[in-house]
Amino acid sequence: MASETERRSPNGGPGWKLGVVDTVEAIDPVAWNALTGGHHPFLRHEFLVALERHGAVGPDVGWVPQFILLRDDSGHLRGAVPAWLKGHSRGEFVFDFAWAEAHERHGLAYYPKLVVSIPWTPATGPRLLVAPGDDAGTIRAVLAEGVRDLTRQLGLSSAHCLFACEPDLEALGNGQFLRRRDFHYFWHNDHYQDFEAFLTALTSRKRKKIRQERRYVREQGIDVRMQTGHELCNTELDLIHAHYANAFRRKTNLPVLSAGFFREIAHTMGEQLLIAVCRHDREIVAAAIMFRGSDTLFGRYWGSSGNYPALHFEACYYQGIDYCIRHGLQRFEPGVQGEHKIARGFLPTRTTSAHWLVSPAFQRAVADYLQREGDLIDTQFEHLRAESPFRVDPTPTAGP
């Protein structure tokens, strides 16, 4: 269904309408990208449509677009929500399997559910998108209610907004969404002049360890260089994809992104696709795939053809830190998990998701669970923050 299905007229303005589309290609790219200004690579129309064209989203993989669109009386796009109909919980990085099992034990269906997020991508960012210059608070409130309305109209169990920003969380909270606390490991730029200045901010033991790891890479004769998608040919992109896919298969995971996907985004948004390309005797032996936003670098995928000591740290962490310093980016999100990141300058930073369950009984049960879980998360967070490698902790504790 490529046409836009009208759901209701909201209170955003006279004649304004909420609609839903089930394909990204039904949305005008210029109007969609204007909502975020291109600041967030995973929200660009080019990225989302490439996911769809190359089979990374859709009914076959359990990520069906249900994008909520808010238009004014002239048909102009004033707000939107990247929502997905999900038949499972894979690729979300916020784990609700216990909630699904509880529904099943009570004879209720948990799936399908509505998820507001970026598929397969645990990156923070806006989720209730608002056109520049508009009354952001009012539009976010309309969009938050639109998420709940769509959940009811489709007969779903629940709605979930993952890794959201604070303004979105506030709007969702007014619509009775529950907050779920967690943390990831982020690097923050404390106005470093260069990589050496960053190292100087660390304790001597951590500083020595990083220099040692970087020396190991040089001694193996491996050249690591950050390149944009525009700078790589299809042959190089295909080899990088092969390394990425093999890394997933070695862990018995499914590499959902195809070589065609990387070719397409290298062409359509190559300036925001950054790859730390690792060459030995001119052959690409490993790569770390990243994406650049206006103030944040996002690390996503790693793959290699063999075992190269310390190369993972160089490509996935140190190259990214150096790039952020040289280009004035404020934050580096290298991906989920990994307490080993702390010693390399990535400190626990809070992230938050929001959840609404249609069943009042389950909403109350989940609220109680999230309170108890959140207390444990807070304790673990403070314990890990105390392991900071910095001589003086320079970084914020909250995400965007």
Rank of each mutant, 00 (worst) to 15 (best):
P132W: 14
H103P: 06
A343Q: 13
P29D: 02
H355P: 00
F262E: 00
Y244F: 14
E92S: 09
D168R: 03
G328C: 05
R218Y: 07
A354F: 07
V81Q: 00
Y317E: 09
A164Y: 02
R225A: 15
I68Y: 03
K251Q: 15
Q153A: 10
L48F: 04
L257R: 00
L143N: 01
R292I: 08
I27A: 03
S117T: 14
S388E: 14
A83M: 12
G303T: 07
F198G: 01
H39F: 13
T352R: 10
R211K: 11
I265S: 00
E4Q: 15
L297I: 08
R179F: 08
T235P: 01
K341F: 09
G37C: 08
V57F: 11
G328L: 02
E333C: 03
A245E: 04
D368P: 05
G55W: 05
D135W: 11
D182M: 15
L114M: 06
L370T: 01
G12F: 11
Y192H: 10
R215G: 04
A266C: 14
T228G: 10
G19D: 03
N189D: 14
H54S: 05
P41S: 09
R331G: 05
E101L: 09
T124M: 11
P10R: 00
L273S: 01
Q153R: 14
H76Y: 10
Y111I: 04
V57G: 09
P309V: 00
I118V: 15
F177V: 12
Y369R: 07
G55K: 07
I210F: 10
T379K: 10
G15F: 08
N174P: 02
D190G: 08
D73H: 08
L156M: 09
L232Y: 04
I377V: 14
S89L: 15
K208R: 15
N253P: 07
T395I: 04
R90N: 11
L347T: 12
T36V: 08
T235C: 11
Y308E: 06
S258R: 02
Q319S: 09
M226D: 01
G270V: 07
A361F: 12
F93W: 13
V336Q: 09
I210L: 06
I275S: 00
P122D: 03
Y369D: 02
A2W: 09
V392Y: 13
R331M: 13
T200R: 14
L70G: 13
L347P: 06
V130F: 00
R391W: 00
L108C: 11
E264A: 11
V57T: 12
G155E: 06
I68S: 02
T235W: 05
A361S: 13
F195L: 03
C278P: 01
R205I: 04
R218T: 11
L254D: 12
G335F: 00
E145L: 08
I342T: 06
R250W: 06
D194I: 01
L297T: 06
I377Q: 04
A343C: 07
A26Q: 03
F42V: 03
I118K: 06
G320T: 07
N33H: 09
E314T: 01
I321K: 10
